[in-house]
Amino acid sequence: MADDAAKLDSACEALKAYNWGADKNALQPIEDAIVSTSSDAAARAALEARLIAVLESDVSRDAKDYVCRALAVIGSTASVPSLATLLAKEELSHMARFALERIPSVQAADALRAALATVSGDLKVGVLSSLGNRGDAASVTQIAAALGDADSKVAAAAAAALGSIRTPEAAKALAAAKPIAAAMSIVIDSRLACAEAFLAQGKMEDARAIYMLLVGESNPKLIRLAATRGIQTCLEQKR
């Protein structure tokens, strides 16, 4: 045990000097500790605290990248504040999401949702996608607000996130969306995804309502065919 602790101390020191090209074998004790603390909450919390300390210190991008990967596996609510501060940083935002997206606590979702007000452009695309990947139904209102964004990538990411969440509220927001033209295809795709979710839940009328609105001549042929097939499925399941 003492030997393991010494190795972990050494690895945490190596992490502080870690950079692309450094010996990653020096970090193996951290990898081992991630596995060995699986059923030892106190030891895992201690490991998390050490990693957070590194994240908050003046270390390389690669070292912070490594910590975020580890926190994606073992991070808890305790990691959220440190990770949240990185969401607005161009170079670190993705890896902060890499961890936050996988941390199940509501505080992680809260942090991502709060970041929507402070980031823009590609960083906002990333935050929206992470909320969608989490299926965070509590974020529908904030995500829907981005549907009208002048940046087509942001609007498309908002639509995609709602298509991942697939609640009735998400479907309503998509139905009401008036995005710029470049984002429209993802809005429609997400509406189809919502209809499929309703079908799977046995909500045939809700699904059919979406399909009926997409079957019209104003939509591309591929969409009309998808909607037609959806209507067919609704009819078959009703029988």
């Binding site: 993705h94 969608g132 991942s164």
Partner: peptide
Amino acid sequence: RARRQPWFLS
């Protein structure tokens, strides 16, 4: 796992 912006999966 989270994808690097501006790429997303849905």
